[in-house]
C-alpha cells in the first residue's frame, strides 16, 4: 500500500473568531502525507490550536476546507473521528478517577469494550511506566504523568492520524523523552502525526517536515534541514524561527 500524499489537506483555511479583529488562521494551505510526523510551529497565539481544532471538528472554519483521508468532518463525522486521535493542549482528564478508570472510560467512548480494552490499557500503562500508579487518582499525579495519561487517552483506539497539541509542554526531560520515543515508534508502525510545539530542537529531531505559522499565516514549510539551509544565516530551527517571526520563541 502506497502512502497517500494528501492524507490531511488544508485548503484556503480562514478562521475569524466572533468579535475578533483579525483572522486567527489566515489563508492557510497545507497537505500532509500519510506516514509523516509533521510539526506545526509558531509563537503563542499563532493559530496552532485553532488549526488543530478545525481539523478535529471542534470548531467551524470561516472559509476554506479541510479533509482527512479524503473525508470531510461535516459529511462523515463518525468515520473521520474514528480515524483520528486527539491529544489536547490542556490535561483533559477526570481528577477524581484513577489512571486506569480514566483510560477505560475514554476507551469506551471510542466504542472499545471488554478484555481487549482492558489489555490495551494495561499495555499502554506499562509502556509509559505507570503500572504501579494505575489505581491512583489522576489528581495526585505529577504534570509529566498526567501528560502521559493525556496522551494514552487519545491513542487507545489506534488511530491512523494522531493530533497532538504541545504534548511536551511544561514537563521534565524524562517524561518528554518517553513521549517522543513513543511517537517515533507509532509513526514507524504507520501512524501519521501532526503535532504543535514551542520546542524547536525537539521538532528538528522528530519531524519529517515542519510548517512555521505566525498570525495565522504560513511563513515556511518543508524538511527542517532544507529550511535551515535555504535561509541564509540560520544554523538551526531556532534561528529560522526568529528570522521568520521576528520573535523569540518564548515571550
Amino acid at each position: 500500500m502506497t502512502n497517500k500524499q494528501d492524507f490531511i489537506e488544508i485548503k484556503g483555511l480562514i478562521k475569524r473568531y466572533p468579535h475578533a479583529e483579525a483572522n486567527a488562521v489566515d489563508h492557510l494551505d497545507l497537505t500532509i502525507a500519510q506516514g509523516e510526523i509533521f510539526g506545526l510551529l509558531g509563537p503563542n497565539g499563532a493559530g496552532k490550536t485553532t488549526t488543530l481544532s478545525i481539523l478535529c471538528g471542534l470548531i467551524s472554519a470561516t472559509a476554506g476546507s479541510v479533509s482527512i483521508d479524503g473525508l470531510s468532518m461535516k459529511s462523515h463525522p463518525d468515520q473521520v473521528k474514528q480515524l483520528i486521535g486527539v491529544v489536547p493542549q490542556e490535561i483533559a482528564l477526570f481528577d477524581k478517577l484513577t489512571a486506569r478508570e480514566n483510560l477505560l472510560y475514554f476507551g469506551q467512548m471510542y466504542g472499545l469494550t471488554g478484555k481487549s480494552l482492558r489489555n490495551n490499557v494495561e499495555n499502554y500503562l506499562r509502556r509509559f511506566g505507570l503500572t504501579d500508579r494505575k489505581n491512583h487518582r489522576i489528581g495526585n499525579f505529577s504534570g509529566g504523568m498526567k501528560r502521559r495519561i493525556n496522551l494514552i487517552a487519545g491513542i487507545l483506539h489506534q488511530p491512523k492520524i494522531l493530533f497532538l497539541d504541545e504534548p511536551t509542554v511544561g514537563i521534565d526531560v524524562h517524561s518528554t523523552n518517553v513521549i517522543l520515543e513513543f511517537l517515533r515508534e507509532i509513526n514507524q508502525q504507520g501512524t501519521t502525526i501532526l503535532y504543535t510545539s514551542h520546542h524547536m530542537n525537539e521538532a528538528e529531531n522528530l519531524c519529517s517536515r515542519i510548517a512555521v505559522i505566525d498570525y495565522g499565516k504560513l511563513m515556511a514549510v518543508g524538511i527542517p534541514a532544507e529550511l535551515i539551509r535555504s535561509h541564509a544565516g540560520c544554523e538551526n530551527l531556532e534561528d529560522l524561527f526568529l528570522q521568520l517571526t521576528g520573535r523569540k520563541l518564548r515571550d
Binding site: C56, G57, L58, P77, D78, Q79, K81, Q82, I84, V86, P88, Q89, E90, I91, A92, L93, F94, F106, M109, Y110, G111, A153, G154
Partner: peptide
C-alpha cells in the same frame, strides 16, 4: 472547563 467535553467531541457518536 477542563477540556474533557472538547475531547469527548473529537470522539465518534
Amino acid at each position: 472547563e477542563s477540556g474533557v467535553s472538547l475531547r469527548l467531541r473529537t470522539m465518534p457518536g
